[in-house]
Amino acid sequence: MMHDMEVKDIVGDYKETILNLYGGLRRVVLYTEIETPYPDGKLIVSTTDITGVITHVNKAFVEMSAYTEDELIGSPHSILRHPDMPAVAFKDLWDTVNRGEHWQGFVKNLRKDGGYYWVKATVIPNIRQGKVVSYTSVRRKPSRIKVNECITLYPTL
């Protein structure tokens, strides 16, 4: 279950907007300009069901998102959606994994406290007995050069 973001959770000055998410969901998001650096050496890993609802997160995911594990499990993965991310990127992600292929891209994720963090994400369909049963997303530390390219590119998409 995903709720609108709340002022009490936000750290620092924030802006407010409404996101129209996949599946007809709408969410009020509050976001700041505070970046949390990606931790060296770690992978952020999560699994979702085929509708994009989170079923598993690792410790690094919990730490970086600032949500608790209980808040994350059962929520749509778009709980991390940052307003600076172009919708076309997520359309491409879903189109790609629905074809049974891997998707890779650089993503700016939104934290519960309104801050953000950049990742290089790889999403793969989990195929068991020939059927896609879930999706695993693995995030690693992105190169700063690639992030800077995305900061320039994404507003144009």
């Binding site: 891997h102 890779q104 790889t122 793969i124 989990n126 693995v138 690693r140």
Partner: peptide, 11 residues
């Protein structure tokens, strides 16, 4: 899961 993870990291 580990195989999927290795797969994801290999690309």
């Amino acid at each position: 899961f580990m195989i999927d993870l290795m797969d994801a990291l290999a690309i």
